[in-house]
Design a binder for these strands. Sequence first.
DNA 1: TAGATTGTTAATCGATTAACAATC
DNA 2: TAGATTGTTAATCGATTAACAATC
Lengths: 223, 223
Amino acid sequence: MKRIDQVEGTFDRDKEKKRATPSDATVRRLPRYYRYLSRLLDDGILRISSSRLATRMGVTASQIRQDFSCFGDFGQQGYGYNVRYLYNKISRILGMKDGHRAVFIGWNDSAHALLSSPTFANGDITPVAVFAEVSPRDLPCYPLQDLREVLPRLDATIAVLNTAPASAQDVLSVLADCGIRGVLNYTTAHLTTPNTGMTIQNVYLDDPCLLLCYQMGSRACED
Amino acid sequence: MKRIDQVEGTFDRDKEKKRATPSDATVRRLPRYYRYLSRLLDDGILRISSSRLATRMGVTASQIRQDFSCFGDFGQQGYGYNVRYLYNKISRILGMKDGHRAVFIGWNDSAHALLSSPTFANGDITPVAVFAEVSPRDLPCYPLQDLREVLPRLDATIAVLNTAPASAQDVLSVLADCGIRGVLNYTTAHLTTPNTGMTIQNVYLDDPCLLLCYQMGSRACED
DNA sequence: TAGATTGTTAATCGATTAACAATC
DNA sequence: TAGATTGTTAATCGATTAACAATC
């Protein structure tokens, strides 16, 4: 049973086979697969074929099999995919089992909304502290000027940045010094990575809104 | 002067030339161009060539020219692009000049965060009302059960959906009845369009967070 | 075993890049 | 005019789809 061998080992890509490195397009679809599989689990569906999953998601079965095959042989011929197994695999691939701990630098609505999103609600990422003036109910809160002193003790890997845009770049270099390896940047500041070990994701809150407006316009043209 | 002719007329694509219909990839880049041009304006830069813009944005000049050329001839040989003109053009293409009015169905942190994002802060979209129990400071607020009665009077085109997932689909059909043409869905519910005239954008708040974690993991592998 | 469905290879399609004539 | 830079066409590259042998 191929699947059983692969359960152990945290990240067993390329153990034997040479696998295609996942394209950007494939990687961007991973969260979507993760969500769908989670929904299947909620619905009590334990087994699914690429073609049924494809129909549900509105993509092709080929694409699904191609995407998954970059990471491992997760299915069984004649059977399909075990939903829970696949879900756990993708969870690992996405790094949800890496025990990430997040600090919030600055506190506002975006921070709050993220904290109630599935990723935090599931416990995939653990929120450990907030650096801000106003404190949310249930997280330890420190003044921003204590960042350099306190942060190294928190064993955090991720920072969620919600400061004023002007101070974002300065804060970023402190974060890098204190061992933060990933930054979710909600500020409008355009940040440059202070060192190569750090990953930044810029979040543009109104992108979906802009695309919606575009689509509303172009739909109208079609009629 | 080619550019002058095109200033009038709200949406003058395909006036004479046959233009390539913009690919999905191109469309998804439009908000990014919009942001960059806005930043150039803030910096007082009035003129830019595709190659300088490309360097700043980390893309190729070819791509920029291809993308823009789906929508019109916005540049001038030997000169480049007039930043303000181009910004206005893209603003129009994105539908920011369509006078969209938005209602918020349900009120939470995501709603609040969106309301303070550039699109609303700029006045590109006008918020007109909230349907929720708790009212934000400066917007008219109605109870959700008055939706069907009040909404038609508000002349709104966009609804920002932040209800409980269970009631989302029901609310959606009311929205469709009341003339809403675009919905920004922040709920975790998977919605199906009630009629063809409606456009839905699903927002997945934790996607950037998941991608960040993925990148943090795969970076580690590279070292 | 027979039926189903995978993982993968080859074929198609689309998007990006390079190059250049047109022209400001 | 000469230099610069566009819009566009052709060439390259990458991603998606189709097809099928392998196999559960």
